[in-house]
């Protein structure tokens, strides 16, 4: 039995587009999901997260069938490109919701939150509102929440796409640091070849609603050198 993430013949039709995913994602590794836009990368992520339900097939996470379970019941944390923080709640509350969605916190929980904030470099930011934070700081706060949730799987939907090149570098370093500390399974959608090269162990390529390859980064990069258009600022 595979203890990573397994999608067995997972089929879904949204409007006129049909998706058919079949792949295995290694445990304890960072897997990038690449592919042209509209290919179904986000749908794949949504299926793993439980935001979409397959019409047929099975989804297993860490050996357990999670095909129909609610997102919150899955051993998963999610970080989006934007809007990871509720704009009207302070950073502490935003992170704390990761522990208790009804904000019932023990003093240990509070300590854990402060620790997580300092681990992502946001010590003392607890009382600040998201609006007063930079884009990078907001994503750090989202990582802090993923930390306190302490789930084995972290799903990232283009988490650094709206940051500038320098920040992307810093954030990738932070991601790697946290990944090494926790040993979690990371699945991340990205367009950025440099980012793939820097952080990903493996790459799953999605095209036209199907997984067309699933291989180590070193095998992937030369094959798809031309297919991925470099984002502005790189090269």
């Amino acid at each position: 039995m595979h203890d990573g993430i397994v999608l067995e013949q997972v089929a879904l039709k949204l409007g006129t587009t049909s998706f058919d995913f079949d792949c295995r994602i290694e445990t304890g590794a960072i897997t990038a999901i690449a592919g042209p836009s509209g290919a179904g990368k986000s749908t794949l992520l949504n299926l793993i997260a439980g935001f979409e339900r397959p019409q047929s097939g099975r989804i297993l996470i860490a050996g357990t069938d999670q095909t129909v379970s609610h997102p919150s019941k899955r051993p998963i944390s999610v970080v989006f490109q934007d809007h990871n923080l509720f704009a009207h709640l302070d950073i502490f509350t935003n992170v704390a919701l990761g522990i208790s969605p009804s904000m019932r916190l023990s003093s240990t929980d509070r300590d854990n939150i402060e620790t997580a904030l300092s681990r992502v470099g946001l010590a003392g930011f607890g009382k600040r509102m998201p609006g007063s934070l930079s884009g990078g700081e907001k994503q750090r706060a989202a990582f802090a929440r993923a930390l306190v949730r302490n789930k084995p799987v972290l799903l990232l939907d283009e988490p650094f796409a709206s940051l500038d090149a320098d920040l992307r570098l810093q954030m990738a370093d932070l991601l790697l640091k946290l990944h090494h500390e926790t040993g979690n399974t990371v699945v991340m959608i990205t367009h950025d070849r440099e980012e793939i090269a820097r952080v990903a162990d493996r790459v799953v390529r999605v095209e036209a609603g199907r997984v067309i390859s699933n291989e180590a980064t070193m095998d992937y990069l030369p094959r798809f050198a031309a297919a991925v258009s470099p984002p502005s600022g790189s090269m």
Partner: peptide
């Protein structure tokens, strides 16, 4: 917001409150 609150396991009361 709605995806996050689902992912965080917020109950209706929490979603309303937060």
């Amino acid at each position: 917001y709605w995806l996050l609150s689902a992912s965080l396991g917020m109950k209706p009361v929490s979603i309303f409150r937060f």
